[in-house]
Design a protein around this nucleic acid. Structure first.
Length: 571
RNA sequence: GGCCCCAUCGUCUAGUCAGGUCCAGGACGCCAGGUUUUCAUCCUGGAAACCGGGGUUCGAAUCCCCGUGGGGUCACCA
């Protein structure tokens, strides 16, 4: 066995949220490192100065940590008392913007040996030439015009500070790449031109930085998406020119959305746009945040993207659930990290046989590159939700309660406020039984919170669902109200003796139904509507317990008062 | 369009590398029935795929070729 451990890396560009496809790549890198006792490294590829941001970098690190992908080397980050990253191997820094001298050193070597050269065409000239080639239906390749300039003159112009890029002089031989997943890939030299390795602004391009860093940082295995397959020959050529090792490559299949298109932030705009068009939404649903003319322009232009929070506000206003794309989206939609990692691991990998529910330890113990698939996968949100619901149902009660409580603090602020408010009927101590009520029936944490919303409002603030009221209370000359009045009497009697518990209430319901010889549903549903405003709620005894005797009676009385008020208006 | 990659139920996939145990298995979804006071569950059953065509072989989902389809890529983005 080799004494040096395998090193994998996940190298995101901090230009936005962590995409679910990126998370899958990171997960496989992590799993391979853990399986082989190697190291998992994070590197931030921030050579695109204009689009990179520190907030994106922090967001990505947070998402990785939240998913449970602990990294050994890389930017330091702490979450929930655990810390990640560091520079134990002394191969940092881990931001490419802090490694410019390393790239420049390597570039100097290439220029000196003639393997790379300065070129002075402006971006405009290049794009014009490219447009010309496209017009002639030819593939554009740089014409090496700069090489016609004598080398000493090129050096003089560079020294004089003339703006230029550095291009790599592509060798004339075909390149073969051994890919662990796809086998041997051969690229003929005419497919590649003298690509830029250092931009006008002095930053290396991705192709160059990645090759230098992977060498200097001792990366042994490069796992990445298949969209990089064609880049690999470039990287191998650079490695050969620089005298570097060639690491093992494993290109993994891509993840698409349910329509077979690439999953992207744009998809969320598309979903909202289609929804607005279908529903004939002609006026901006959020005029104070999105002006009418901006709304119109966005609806017309399929390429236009709204700011994330504006888009979310719009979706909420029209009652649309946006498709999740980034890890952050899934977290806020109430998916659990264990489920997300389990599910995305299955997109392009599986342990063989019929096993498909597993945890990170299992993944780490079973993960092998040989079991990575070759075919692109579609992301099925319905199946993810099913997994999430199963996982929630099987969680230890205390664990679920803790997660739900944390989720409320992060995403359902008004629940959080009420739980901390000592005058409210529910408090922190009730969290266990609150969670227990929704645990078996919730698909996501958002689902759980929504199912609990009835318990966090005051009797006076309940909004009654019209359909529910008509069907269960008003129908048959207000038969439901009649039932409710009878039940109120019995419940009041129970309460007076201190016995209006969920169980007792439930029993009272059953005996009432038997006495009157009516279906239990015709008793329970009117009560359910009176207590929650809708036909959907947890079990009756649980609902009664959660509200407590006083609140139950208050809600029943208010419901009957509303009926009286509406009757007196003669409606 | 050039080049590269891929191809099993609607979807994720097992099986393919080492051809027979596969009239192709599992999961999600779907359909039908049942349980249930709502919701969510749960139970039973069902429909559902080896892209097409050649070839190799006693035998092919598995190997080869062609076609077709899908995807990727052709930036001073990564």
């Amino acid at each position: 066995m080799s004494s040096t451990p395998n090193v994998t890396r996940f190298a995101p560009s901090p230009t936005g949220h962590l995409h679910i496809g990126g998370a899958r790549t990171a997960l496989f890198c992590w799993a391979f490192a853990r399986h082989t006792g190697g190291r998992f490294m994070i590197r931030l590829e921030d050579t695109d100065v204009a689009r990179s941001s520190e907030s994106s970098a922090v967001g990505i690190l947070h998402d990785l940590a939240w998913l449970g992908l602990d990294w050994d080397d890389g930017p330091e980050y702490a979450l929930d008392g655990k810390s990640f990253g560091g520079d134990e191997r002394g191969v940092g820094p881990y931001r490419q913007s802090e490694r410019l001298e390393l790239y420049n050193e390597a570039i100097e070597r290439l220029v000196e040996s003639g393997a790379a050269y300065a070129a002075f065409e402006s971006p405009e000239e290049i794009s014009a030439a490219r447009a010309e080639a496209v017009k002639r239906k030819q593939q554009y390749r740089y014409d090496r015009a700069a090489l016609k300039i004598p080398a000493d003159e090129r050096a003089r112009r560079v020294a004089a500070g003339e703006p230029h890029v550095i291009r790599f002089r592509t060798p004339d031989d075909a390149v073969e790449v051994e890919d662990v997943v796809l086998g041997t890939i051969r690229i003929e030299p005419e497919q590649l031109d003298d690509f830029v390795i250092r931009k006008r602004d002095g930053y290396p391009t991705y192709h160059f930085a990645v090759v230098v860093d992977d060498e200097l940082m001792g990366v042994t295995h490069i796992l990445r998406g298949q969209e990089h397959l064609i880049n690999t020959p470039r990287h191998v050529m650079l490695q050969q020119a620089l005298g570097y090792r060639t690491p093992e490559y494993a290109h993994m299949p891509l993840i698409f959305n349910d329509k077979g298109a690439k999953m992207s932030k744009r998809e969320r705009d598309g979903a909202a746009r289609d929804f607005c068009k279908q529903r004939g939404v002609s006026e901006s649903p959020i005029p104070d945040r999105l002006a009418q003319d901006a709304f119109d322009a966005w609806k017309k232009d399929k390429k236009q993207q709204l700011e994330g929070d504006v888009l979310e506000a719009l979706a909420e206003a029209v009652g649309l659930h946006l498709p999740e794309v980034s890890v952050d989206d899934f977290r806020r939609a109430g998916y659990l990290p264990e489920v997300i990692t389990n599910f995305i691991a299955l997109l392009g990998w599986n342990p063989g046989g019929d096993v498909e529910k597993f945890d990170m330890d299992f993944l780490a113990s079973k993960f092998e590159l040989g079991r990575i698939g070759k075919t692109n996968a579609r992301f099925d949100r319905t199946k993810l939700m099913s997994f999430n619901g199963d996982f929630i149902a099987e969680m230890a009660a205390a664990d679920f309660a803790g997660r739900l409580r944390a989720f409320m603090a992060a995403e359902f602020a008004h629940f959080d406020v009420r739980l901390k408010d000592t005058s409210f009927r529910l408090g922190e101590d009730d969290m266990g039984r609150i969670a227990a009520v929704v645990q078996p029936r919730s698909k996501t944490l958002v689902d759980a919170c929504e199912r609990l919303s009835f318990a966090f409002v005051d009797a006076a603030d309940i909004t009654y669902d019209d359909k529910a009221v008509k069907k269960n209370l008003e129908k048959n000359d207000g038969a439901g109200y009649g039932v409710l009045r009878d039940l109120l009497e019995r419940f009041e009697a129970l309460a007076a003796s201190g016995g209006l518990t969920g169980e007792a209430g439930h029993t009272a319901l059953q005996s009432y139904a038997e006495e009157k010889d009516i279906k239990l549903g015709n008793v329970a549903q009117p009560l359910r509507v009176a207590l929650t405003g809708s036909t959907v709620s947890p079990g009756m005894d649980e609902t009664l317990d959660l509200l407590g005797a006083d609140e139950v009676l208050a809600r029943m009385r208010r419901c009957l008062e509303l009926q009286a008020a509406s009757a007196s208006r003669g409606s």
